[in-house]
C-alpha cells in the first residue's frame, strides 16, 4: 500500500525539514466546521495539491497557513515558523495569490508590484527593478504602465501570481489560481506556474480541478468536509483508490442486467455503474480482461457495440472517495 494515510505521513515527517507541517488543525465558523483535525506534511521543493470541492475547507487551510486566520485547535508550521506565535517572521517567507485577484485596480501593474516589494522591505530601487523583471516574465510588459482595471481576467491572475513571487519566497500559496479563467488562459497560467514557481520553491496549490492537480502537483491531498480523506501522488491515488474500469457499450436490444450478470465474476466487488446502454465494471488490473469480457458476453448472447478498458482518472478517485463528483459544488465556501 503506497498511499499514505495522513497519520502515517505525519509519523514519517521530519518537521524541521518540511516546508509545511500541520497537526490536528481545526477551525469552525459559527455553525460550520470548516477544518476537522487536518494533518499535512509538505516536503520542501515540491508542489503540493489540495484538491476538493467548494466548501471543503481548502481556503480556510490556506488562510490559516498564511496567518490571515487563527486556528481553533492544532498547530501549523510554515518554513519552520509557527503560524500563531511567529506570524511576523513567517510572513517574510511566504507569497500568497488568492482566489480573487488581490491587486489594486486603480494602480498600474508596475505600481502594484513595486508597492508589494516595498512592503516586503526590499528597498525602493530593488522593488522597482523586481517589478519590471516580473512584468517581463509574466508577459505584462506592455500593460505594466496601465491601470489594472483595464486588464483581462487572465492578466489580473498573472499579476496576482507575480505579486506572490516578488520577494522570491520559499513557500508559495496559490488558492485556486485558475478559477474563472477560460481554458486557454488556464493552460498558459499552468505553464507560468511550472516555469516560474517550481524553481526550488515549495508550492501549496488548492484547486477544484482534477486536471490542474494532476498536471501541477507532485503530491495531492484530497480534502472534503474539512478533512483530508486521501493523500499520495496522482498515480498512487489512481491505483489505490480507483481501479481500471471495463466499459461496455451494449447494442440497442441488449439487456444491461444480463450483461452485468455475465461480467459479475470479473468485478472487484465495487458497485458497477449503468448509464443507459453503457455499463462500467471495476475490474482491478486484470490482464486479458478484454478477451474474457468478450467471451463471457458472447456466451450470454449480449450484443455489444464497443468495449474498452478505461484507465482511472482523478475524477474516479474523487467519486470513489467522496461519493460525489469533484466539480460539483458542495455549497458555498464557508466564509
Amino acid at each position: 500500500m503506497q498511499t499514505l494515510q495522513p497519520s502515517q505521513s505525519l509519523a514519517r515527517a521530519v518537521s524541521d525539514e518540511s516546508a509545511i507541517v500541520t497537526q490536528g488543525l481545526s477551525k469552525s465558523y459559527k455553525n460550520v466546521r470548516a477544518l476537522i483535525g487536518v494533518d499535512l506534511v509538505v516536503p520542501p521543493g515540491s508542489v503540493f495539491g489540495l484538491l476538493g470541492p467548494n466548501g471543503a475547507g481548502k481556503t480556510t487551510l490556506v488562510r490559516i497557513l498564511a496567518t490571515l486566520l487563527k486556528p481553533d485547535a492544532g498547530t501549523a508550521r510554515v518554513a519552520g515558523y509557527d503560524v500563531v506565535r511567529e506570524g511576523a517572521r513567517l510572513r517574510t517567507q511566504i507569497g500568497v495569490a488568492g482566489q480573487y485577484a488581490a491587486v489594486d485596480e486603480n494602480l498600474t501593474g508596475f505600481e502594484n508590484l513595486e508597492m508589494v516589494g516595498r512592503l516586503y522591505h526590499l528597498g525602493g530601487r530593488v522593488a522597482q527593478s523586481r517589478a519590471d523583471e516580473l512584468l517581463e516574465h509574466f508577459d505584462l510588459e506592455e500593460a505594466g504602465r496601465r491601470p489594472v482595471r483595464t486588464y483581462s481576467g487572465g492578466m489580473r491572475k498573472r499579476l496576482d501570481l507575480a505579486a506572490a513571487l516578488v520577494a522570491r519566497p520559499p513557500v508559495i500559496f496559490l488558492d485556486e489560481p485558475t478559477t474563472g479563467l477560460d481554458p486557454r488562459s488556464r493552460v498558459s497560467l499552468w505553464e507560468t506556474i511550472e516555469r516560474r514557481v517550481a524553481e526550488g520553491s515549495t508550492v501549496l496549490l488548492t484547486t477544484q480541478y482534477l486536471d490542474e492537480a494532476d498536471r501541477l502537483a507532485d503530491r495531492i491531498a484530497v480534502i472534503d468536509h474539512g478533512g483530508v480523506i486521501a493523500e499520495g501522488t496522482s498515480d498512487e491515488l489512481k491505483h489505490q483508490v480507483a481501479r481500471e474500469r471495463l466499459e461496455v457499450v451494449l447494442g440497442e436490444g441488449a439487456d444491461p442486467t444480463v450483461a452485468l450478470q455475465a461480467l459479475a465474476v470479473m468485478g472487484d466487488g465495487q458497485q458497477p455503474r449503468v448509464e443507459g446502454q453503457v455499463i462500467s465494471v471495476s475490474v482491478g488490473r486484470r490482464p486479458g480482461a478484454i478477451v474474457e469480457a468478450v467471451r463471457r458476453l458472447d456466451t450470454a448472447r449480449v450484443e455489444i457495440v464497443d468495449l474498452a478498458i478505461r484507465r482511472p482518472t482523478l475524477n474516479d478517485v474523487f467519486f470513489t472517495l467522496t461519493g460525489h463528483k469533484a466539480e460539483e459544488s458542495a455549497g458555498e465556501e464557508a466564509e
Binding site: R63, A66, T67, L68, A88, R89, R91, T92, I94, V96, G98, Y100, A101, A102, V103, D104, E105, V116, L119, Y120, H121, A163
Partner: peptide
Amino acid sequence: RKGLVDRFRSLPM
C-alpha cells in the same frame, strides 16, 4: 471586499 487587506496582512509589513 476585494482582498487587498488580505494581501497586506499576508505581507511582512
